[in-house]
Design a protein around this nucleic acid. Structure first.
Lengths: 263, 263
DNA sequence: TAGTGGTCTAGACCACTTC
DNA sequence: AAGTGGTCTAGACCACTAA
């Protein structure tokens, strides 16, 4: 026999999936269910908290508990890095992606701060530097309308970016073409990349910054960008609200014994 | 002022990260903290539940609350599909990957069931079939020792696999070379793939099957495998415990205006 | 100001593990 | 049998939102 709060949560989840409570609709108030004999306030509250952790509803004080809108996943394919977009056009990679998916675009949806910091271990390893070496960190918080969707922090070696727009401490987006364009103009053309992806529980800070509902995970992306000769020109760490993104990769099946997939 | 249970949870999390409670060590019992004036039993319990949701500890009745062992992420690169491994050798892709990372390998770490089912929407779309068309589903549950790590269900079109070892209803692994080898022997050589990745909250069923601690997310992987002429020969859905895997992809930066990255 | 969800207490009982 | 975490109650008060 499952716990009472579990049974109640499952019952409500079932009703939500059946459509009894469409997205945006309020669930019964906690006290109503208490009066209806579903248990004490703490029990009903536990059920609601479980539904929130499962991503089905969001609760807010003074307002109620409403069924969450399921926003479609934004699909991130490697086409978002297409050189034509940032070299010849006027689009930053992440924005180009949004344009392609038909969503609106506003200039102030990205905030940025640049600072010179001591390289953390992961950053140092990616750049082949000793831990604590000075690197430029360019941190962005990206929003979709009012809602933050992810953070993205790029780390550069000082000798690559000093004197460029990238390290201009004035807050604001990198401007026409974005960071890759600035590097290109500085003589560093990006050639290939490595992306590493995993999901984890957000820290309390990240949950606040990204306004994550209780129980939502984040996906961390590590992107290493190389020039043709293998120099690491950028290492970036992204932290994404898990419910908003999917990643997509196409590749040939490798064949180390033949010639059928070796890059 | 944060809630009392939040403060307690943060304090304990801090102590865990500082090393006061190394992995495997028991945290103070709930009643001890109640006696120490940290709050009522419900309050301390809420703090412990938060720590569990954050992946730091696991609680069990009659036993106590212990600090979780942080297993290193298993890195999944596309090299795990190397043709040389399954075509010329004796290894299944996922096992080859484990051998490469120096872990032990046991035959019975994978269970398998095969059945003919009506294609769900996603499967039908991937194979270009109408929803409900018959497809073979080959479902595996993969374990690392005693602990389940992920499920992987492959869907095949009947005309591709009928009469092969793949649809042998006898439970057990696919045998020498794995599924790709069977397809290769049947005249279908895999050539390229598409992988889609996203994280989400597990269903109650998945949490039970994968023995997930409260609050741990799953990563869902959709893998479409093509022959050289573009025929979809396998569509697979994997559900992975988020804390155990990372994915890794290398690729050229595309250039739709030139020749520098077009596959 | 009224109504919402969120926190907290004190105490009871239950389910499970260990001895 | 003793001790653990888990559930549940009844009731109080707090923080926030909307009319």
């Amino acid at each position: 026999m499952a716990a009472k709060w579990r049974e109640l949560a499952d019952k409500l989840a079932e009703q939500i999936k059946r459509g009894d409570y469409p997205p945006g609709k309020r669930l019964p108030h906690i006290r109503e269910l208490v009066d209806a004999g579903e248990g004490s306030k703490a029990t009903v509250h536990a059920a609601y908290k479980a539904l929130e952790a499962e991503g089905l509803v969001t609760s807010s004080r003074g307002h109620g508990t409403v069924v969450r809108q399921q926003v479609p996943l934004k699909r991130l394919g490697i086409a978002r890095y297409d050189k034509a977009k940032w070299r010849d056009g006027d689009e930053v990679a992440f924005i180009a992606d949004r344009v392609a998916s038909g969503r609106s675009y506003r200039r102030n949806e990205q905030t940025q701060t640049v600072s010179l910091v001591e390289a953390p271990a992961e950053v140092a390893a990616a750049h082949g530097l000793p831990v604590g070496a000075p690197v430029y960190a360019r941190a962005r918080l990206v929003k979709e309308g009012e809602q933050p969707t992810h953070t993205l922090t790029s780390y550069y070696r000082p000798e690559h970016v000093e004197g460029t727009r990238l390290v201009d401490p004035t807050p604001g987006p990198a401007g026409r073409g974005g960071g890759f364009r600035v590097l290109y103009d500085a003589g560093y053309e990006i050639d290939h990349m490595k992306e590493q992806i995993f999901a984890r529980t957000p820290s309390a800070d990240e949950a606040r910054l990204l306004q994550l509902p209780a129980g939502e995970a984040v996906v961390e992306l590590h992107r290493t960008t190389y020039t043709e000769d293998g120099t690491v020109i950028e290492f970036a760490i992204g932290v994404h609200a898990a419910s908003r993104f999917a990643w997509e990769y196409d590749f040939k099946v490798p064949d180390s014994a033949g010639d059928g997939g070796k890059p």
